[in-house]
Design a protein around this nucleic acid. Structure first.
Lengths: 336, 336
DNA sequence: CTGTTAGCGCGTTCAC
DNA sequence: GTGAACGCGCTAACAG
């Protein structure tokens, strides 16, 4: 019934060497005579020895695992980031402890603490926004942190994002150019700075440059779900909007469906531009025009940055802004 | 620069007790006088002491961490399972090490080994199929394993699934009843028993009961992606099929889009039934009729089962079959 | 190139 | 109720 684990001692004994030598072989330390190395490797193979990573972690103070805090894996935007994170992580021999936070402030703190208790070497945080409590915890602990798809105004920790403001301005400007006089701004919770500050600012920038007036009644706040989007369309129509800038793909899918369900033609009668370019955008008909954020890359670069931080390597810049593009597809009139 | 960790010794010293007592307090051992307990708790609070889970893991041989092998987090089907897993896991104070396998046999083995090296208390495996190598590894290690959305014919390890065969038969029968004489069977890789064995068998069952002949040319194998589905529709049309049973939601979305793109009316001219009821099925227009697997629950139940296995509790049954239903939506004619 | 010896931080008997 | 002491499996100097 015992989990009869074979330890480094067993290997050492069988190979007639000291455990230190076995340790060296296992860790690829060059200071081992090829002969003995082979001898040890043979025994390891024969005994099917597998180094205990926990013991290793205790002794070396490195666990080669990083914590990843994600609002919800079920959200394609975050799942895409997560995929980039995991790929780069495994490339660098790290494992990921994934924890859903539901954007719940209490849960976040709690998750962070268990992550730190598990001695993760680093943390990647996703969630659009970051509360003061979290910021405090981050700066208090010495564990490196990188935000992915999340902006920290203080720039205390690493982060990887795109220029949400410029992107929003660019597509809204196109919407204006295409003749829309009333353009709705739809986003998830404005408590998320990405929505409430950056994207909204970009939206206003575009209006201003076109000498159009900002109209509060065209601003819609919602949840990150397609059902909310479907319901929202009625209000959008009532507002007199003829186009919408949408801050989330699922939400955009909902709005598109809301329009279709009411017989409103997209893009002839109503234009939609969304922001994440998750694969959802190509699953709808018409396909959604969108700002193409490099989701996978944001995750990948975040993880890469984290590896540097964990190794205390010099980093040029901890605040990384990745380029975005705009894909003109079926929900806007200005195809390219 | 030091990670100045406060250990159990620091707390013991400050509280004028032995570390054993602190350990007892931390672990909720009742054999501690209330007075001293409070004293210790105060110090813990004051010093902001956080037990080192790694050291704990070494000493107790329990890591309260379970490994989760997933083909791709970016796939809504698996992401949904993962969400169920994580929720129940955190409910039982476990953390999840999430590893993408891409269904790659080599990578899977490799991932499994690092998971075991990290001394996870249990493993949840997702991936539809399970190779002989994996099965061998599973039975060799004493770490409990539960399969989620994956069938093991040997029933050596725990598993949670739905009755794929019956489900397939049921919906194909409906397709037949609705007048289709040529019904295509579309699925991901048939190497996955769920597709190649169970669903296919269910499909054949339905044909047989209706005295219809099985036609090899109506069987289509594809990848789990919506783009494959779009391309596939042409072949479907050429095959003379007027309906399709599809073994994956993304794939079904692709087929639906393929039809729409070619001006084929769904469900009037072509019916589609898919199988996972991920939220994708409600994002299309028309909405996809589907077998409603309780995705979240499959993950949740799998994790619950794993907790029992890890605690060596008695379990009624290691092979769990959850109920499914059928949602008649827009891509079939027989609405309910 | 190889062996010895301390810990790493905590759980856990076993006495007191 | 509480403390002392050993050990979990391995890394990391330090000798040799």
């Amino acid at each position: 019934m015992e989990k009869q684990t074979i330890t480094i001692y067993d290997v050492a004994r069988e190979a007639n060497v000291s455990m230190a030598t076995v340790s060296r072989v296992v860790n690829g330390n060059p200071n081992v005579k090829p002969t003995t190395r082979k001898k040890v490797l043979d025994v390891i193979d024969r005994l099917d020895y597998r180094p205990n990573a926990v013991a290793r972690g205790l002794a070396s103070k490195k666990t080669t695992t990083v914590g990843v805090i994600i609002p919800d894996v079920t959200n394609l935007y975050f799942a895409s980031l997560a995929r980039g994170i995991d790929d780069i992580a495994s490339m660098y021999k790290y494992n990921i402890i994934l924890a859903n936070s539901d954007q719940n402030d209490v849960k976040e703190i709690q998750v962070l603490n268990t992550l730190l208790a598990k001695q993760v070497d680093g943390i990647i945080y996703m969630g659009h926004k970051i509360t003061d409590d979290m910021r405090a915890e981050f700066s208090r602990s010495k564990t490196p942190v990188v935000l992915a798809g999340t902006v920290d105004p203080d720039e205390q920790v690493g982060s990887v994002n795109v220029d949400y403001r410029n992107a929003a301005e660019e597509v809204v400007a196109e919407l204006i150019k295409s003749g829309n006089e009333r353009i709705a701004f739809v986003s998830g919770p404005q408590a998320d700075p990405i929505n409430g500050i950056y994207r909204l600012a970009g939206y206003k920038d575009a209006l201003e440059k076109a000498s159009m007036e900002f109209d509060e009644s065209l601003i819609f706040e919602s949840e990150y779900s397609f059902t909310s989007g479907e319901e929202l369309f009625t209000k959008l129509a009532e507002s007199g909007a003829t186009a919408a800038f949408v801050g989330d793909d699922e939400l955009a899918v909902g709005i598109l469906n809301g329009a279709v369900d009411r017989g409103v033609k997209v893009p002839e009668e109503f234009e939609i531009v969304t922001t994440n370019n998750s694969k959802l955008t190509e699953m709808t008909r018409p396909k959604l025009s969108t700002i193409t954020q490099p989701l996978y890359d944001i995750g990948a670069v975040a993880m890469r940055l984290l590896t540097k931080l964990m190794n205390k390597e010099e980093t040029d810049e901890k605040t990384i802004i990745l380029p975005y593009h705009v894909a003109h597809r079926g929900t806007t009139r200005s195809e390219d």
